[in-house]
Simulated assay, not measured.
Amino acid sequence: MYTEEKITDPSPGPELFDALEKPVKIHKVVQEAILLAGGAVAILLQVAEPGVAQGVDNHSNFAYRPLDRLRTTMTYVYCVTFGTRDEKKAVVEMVHRAHESVNGPGYSADDPRLQLWVAATLYAVGIELYQEMFGIFEDADAEAIYREYSVLALSLRVTPDMWPPSQKEFWKYWNNQIATMDVTDNAKSVAKNILRNKEAPLQIRLILPLVRLTTAQMLPDRLRQAYGLKTGKIRRATYRFVMGFTKATYPCLPKTIRTYPMKYYMRDMRRRLENTA
């Protein structure tokens, strides 16, 4: 699914919160609800890193709280890209506090190396889905969006020099990660809780077969096999049909519908901040 992209205009290092207080190119991508369709893919990519897998499996509960996990993740992503300076500061501080207790032998949620990988998966999955729906970006726009995506990493513990300076360098880092990571029992446990969650609300359980299908096809071959997910001619054909239908219909939806999740989670975040003020 993910391969190194052609880059002709490498740009300098990423910019921080100041540049994100005005409308920027990343908003065009992050606001789209279609990115939620890659949620399970992003999580399985994240936990393919053993340290992330340990932290998630030992300190999270996807089986009983899938909607809470979604709420936490999307609140962070939307707030860091769309929030005011004070809102960003408040949400980042909440994330840091939540991460303080997520540690154990050989792993820590505050490890910048692990946080870099988590942010990288959000970029790779998000940009893939957006371009699948709306077409490939021009090189200059693609590079600008890539730089701006670094805020998801830099707002945590990742230092600017850790975020690859260009897309070309990013995909080198990405391909090396995919080729060398091991899918552990912790990762498989998380995958089972996501893809075969018998405790989830009914509306989630009803769509799990589709989630399993699309997740399996979107994962790189090496990781799909390591997770024990199936593929084949019929599954690949079904996936192509689903993506083709989605590509033909999703961009035609009114923008108010396509951006509803972003607006919903931003309102929810602001309501919670008001209650804690």
Rank of each mutant, 00 (worst) to 15 (best):
M1F: 01
E4A: 07
E4I: 10
K6C: 13
S11N: 11
P14C: 12
E15W: 11
L16V: 07
A19C: 08
L20A: 10
K22F: 11
K22C: 10
K25I: 06
V29N: 02
V29M: 02
E32V: 00
I34Q: 14
A37K: 08
G38T: 03
V41K: 00
Q46V: 02
G51D: 06
V56A: 09
V56P: 03
D57K: 11
A63C: 09
A63H: 06
A63P: 00
R69Q: 09
R71Y: 05
T72A: 04
T73Q: 06
T75C: 04
T75N: 03
T75H: 07
Y78S: 01
Y78Q: 00
V80C: 09
G83D: 01
G83P: 01
T84F: 10
R85S: 13
E87Y: 15
K88W: 05
R97S: 11
H99Y: 01
S101M: 12
V102N: 15
N103Y: 12
G106W: 11
S108M: 10
S108R: 08
D110E: 13
D111G: 01
P112S: 11
R113S: 05
L116G: 05
L129N: 11
I136D: 11
F137I: 00
F137G: 00
E138L: 08
A140G: 09
A140C: 11
D141A: 11
A142R: 02
A142F: 00
A142N: 01
A144E: 07
A144G: 00
R147M: 07
L152T: 01
L154S: 01
L154I: 12
V158W: 14
T159I: 07
P160S: 12
D161Q: 08
D161Y: 08
M162A: 11
W163N: 00
W163S: 01
P164H: 03
P165V: 09
F170E: 08
W171D: 12
Y173S: 05
W174G: 04
W174D: 13
N176M: 15
M181H: 07
T184W: 15
D185K: 15
N186M: 13
A187H: 11
K188N: 09
S189N: 06
A191I: 12
N193S: 14
I194F: 09
N197F: 07
N197M: 09
N197C: 10
L202G: 08
Q203Y: 14
I204R: 08
V211M: 03
V211F: 03
R212Y: 07
R212E: 14
T214M: 06
T214P: 07
T214I: 03
A216I: 05
M218Y: 04
L223D: 06
Y227G: 04
G228V: 07
A237D: 12
V242L: 15
V242M: 15
P254D: 04
R258T: 01
R258Q: 12
P261T: 10
K263G: 08
D268A: 14
M269G: 06
L273M: 15
N275M: 14
